[in-house]
């Protein structure tokens, strides 16, 4: 075809080759800028502190200095509290993920497929919580949690995040296009509403639930502000708090600090590589949200 030929000729001229080269260079340069600090973290975690702060930085470690990881896990006082803190992070992020996914699915299903008085008001109410940033309500929440005696406990860390408007909205959007005929057929066959949810709805929304799960897990794994407010005891702290403590206590041992950071990152990075589809999918879902 003549038009195709024209495009091909255009592509071959010199200026477009230069532009093409520039784009590659830019993309690779940005990839280096983005990945270098990550590589730095892992290589520095395998070096003694004296090498980490050497100028210029030796990118390839001479040997593997495992003592950093040992020191990071052991802590400055030899209490191995970091292991407990890691466990806490898993417990909190895991519980919040489970409750968020279940409650979002069930509420989203209720809002998408049932008609009852006041439904639209309820939906608007839930959407309104979108507009309440956690940072604006953290102080009263803190007062509530301390008043009912849940400071320094798993319940205190978990309860304020049981479900969120974004999750409900996401699941509702997913269910709204689900064919009613299938649900009605199940009803005629005598299935209860709960059974319909368990045996038809849940198995059909695994991808959306998985995306919501990784997003929730990630944001809880990252949570610093809330634990800072309500956790005082060492054994109830989470990973971000341990790192804060490690910095303020022992700022000089950079190798061990990077080992601590690496330990905190490895689980989430493994999760990211294994489930990257759902991480990216989550970002995409966010962008498709329309009130």
């Amino acid at each position: 075809m003549q038009n195709e030929g024209q495009i091909k000729i255009k592509k071959r001229n010199i200026s477009s080759v230069i532009i093409d080269g520039f784009i590659w260079l830019f993309l690779i340069g940005m990839a280096i800028f983005i990945l270098a600090p990550l590589v730095f973290m892992f290589t520095a975690s395998l070096m003694p502190a004296s090498d980490v702060m050497k100028m210029p930085f030796p990118w390839i470690p001479k040997g593997i200095y495992w003592q950093n990881y040992w020191h990071g896990l052991r802590g400055n006082d030899g209490s191995f509290i970091y292991i407990r803190n890691i466990l806490n992070s898993f417990i909190v992020a895991g519980s919040v993920t489970v409750t968020t996914v279940i409650l979002s699915a069930i509420t989203g299903f209720g809002l998408a497929k049932y008609h009852f008085w006041g439904k639209n008001v309820v939906f608007m109410m839930i959407m309104a919580t979108f507009m309440i940033p956690f940072e604006a309500i953290m102080i009263p929440l803190y007062l509530v949690i301390t008043k009912i005696g849940l400071q320094d406990s798993y319940q205190g860390l978990i309860i304020p995040f049981l479900v969120n408007a974004f999750g409900i909205f996401l699941m509702r959007q997913y269910y709204i296009t689900f064919p009613d005929e299938i649900l009605d057929a199940a009803r005629i066959d005598g299935a209860s509403e709960m059974m319909i949810f368990r045996t038809i709805i849940v198995p059909n929304s695994i991808p959306a639930m998985a995306s919501l799960a990784v997003l929730t897990f990630k944001s809880q794994w990252d949570n610093l502000l809330w634990p800072l407010l309500i956790i005082q005891s060492e054994e109830m702290k989470t990973i971000p708090q341990y790192i804060v403590k490690f910095i303020s206590e022992k700022h000089t041992d950079e190798g061990a600090l990077m080992a601590v950071a690496s330990i905190a990152s490895i689980p989430i990075l493994i999760l990211f590589v294994r489930l990257s589809k759902y991480f990216m999918g989550g970002a995409a879902l966010f962008s498709s949200r329309k009130g």
């Binding site: 990252d222 610093l224 790192i243 990152s265 990211f272």
Partner: peptide
């Protein structure tokens, strides 16, 4: 995308 999955605290210490 990879830095976005790291916790902000880890990012800050790096």
């Amino acid at each position: 995308y990879s830095p976005a999955v790291l916790s902000s605290v880890v990012v800050a210490v790096i």
